[in-house]
Design a protein around this nucleic acid. Structure first.
Lengths: 204, 204
DNA sequence: ATACTAAACGGACTACGGTCCGGTTTCTAT
DNA sequence: ATAGAAACCGGACCGTAGTCCGTTTAGTAT
């Protein structure tokens, strides 16, 4: 349970941190490399921590020290793609980024999120599951805050709670299962999201 | 994996079924009884299948033959309360039951659901987790269908998908964590739900 | 009553996520 | 170069969900 991933991903000489030991760095590299291979070959669902430790020629304890949990590993594997998506809605061009109306930005956000989830679905599901509450995923918090700001700007009475409703409406499990299990086209999902946001934010 | 809970809960002489054996009936009774005691005393989260088997003086295999999985057991435990709630929105008085406008019925449905979840949260979370997709829970399917019908009546373009969005917005995990972990009052949840439905279904 | 069969039983077994801790390695100070 | 301490390592170990299969037992036909 209680576990703090010491230097989650400090890449280089971060200011005060006591310089990550070389064996630790080497093992982290080995682990990430092996994890990516395993995911590519068998999919994220099939990745077990034992197999990873074995493939990376590392003890199991090392895997958990590095990533804290299976969910933590998946989040690390996702972090690049996630950062890019975040840059998109925080600093990118409209309508996703700043410059458009809250409604347009929310529509674009949902569409972007849906396609992002469809590309990284397995990883996202694995990252969200087994976490006591999926909301603890940092990226989820950021998305929630983003929507909250836009909803407030659009005059929603309780933007925090409404953003939570929308967050769950975009739940990775929901999106992936809609498309892959229940046969809903991505297009229908984005269209419905647009309808939801449009009606929700239509000036009264 | 593959497992069909033979006669999920056939209470009496169901037509053609080859009459459940007496030892099976007796063990099911023992199991349900023990399960309820354990849940009352320690909470649903803390219930382990081993402990249940032990307490019911029954082999572990028997537990799984009866309920298929931990989620299945939780669903069985829930079924009474769930049936009552279902009767409420299908046959009860308006605004929850038939007779009110779709918007009013949806508002009432969400409010009822929120309070229902807050009362049976642990069981619901346990029933939904570990199922490959939570949508497979039969009660969830029925709720989804109910909302779909109301949304269609209210002129939503793709009621099936919209109902799915709303289903996830009312996710048990979300509701329970909002209230118990993030300190949101049930009142704020129901108010926000009302705002969501009202704006969504406002005549354009 | 007896014999037969299909269903039910039980508990040993597997797989997996996660924890623990004694031993080892790297870095730093001298 | 040496010593000491902090960080790190590995793999044995634990708890839990779920499976398997040889054995027992309830119903049925004679």
């Amino acid at each position: 349970m209680s576990f703090i991933p010491l230097q989650p991903d400090a890449p280089l000489g971060t200011p005060g941190l006591p310089h990550e030991r070389s064996d630790a760095a080497r093992n982290r590299e080995r682990l990430l490399c092996a994890a990516r291979e395993l995911v590519d070959e068998f999919g994220a669902e099939a990745l077990t921590m034992d197999a990873l430790a074995c493939k990376a020629k590392v003890g199991k304890g090392t895997v958990f020290r590095r990533f804290g949990s299976r969910a933590g590993l998946m989040m690390t594997l996702l972090s690049d793609a996630e950062s890019e998506f975040q840059r998109g809605f925080m600093f990118g061009p409209p309508p996703l980024g700043p410059g458009a109306s809250p409604a347009d930005r929310l529509v674009a956000f949902g569409e972007g999120r849906i396609y992002f989830v469809l590309e990284n679905g397995e990883l996202l599901k694995a990252a969200g599951a087994a976490t006591r509450n999926r909301f603890d995923v940092p990226a989820t918090k950021l998305s929630h805050r983003h929507m909250e700001v836009l909803l407030r700007e659009a005059g929603i009475a309780d933007p925090w709670v409404m953003a939570m409703s929308l967050t769950y409406a975009l739940d990775p499990e929901r999106i992936v299962d809609d498309v892959r299990v229940r046969g809903i086209s991505p297009r229908r999902l984005t269209d419905s999201w647009r309808e939801l946001i449009t009606r929700l934010l239509k000036a009264s």
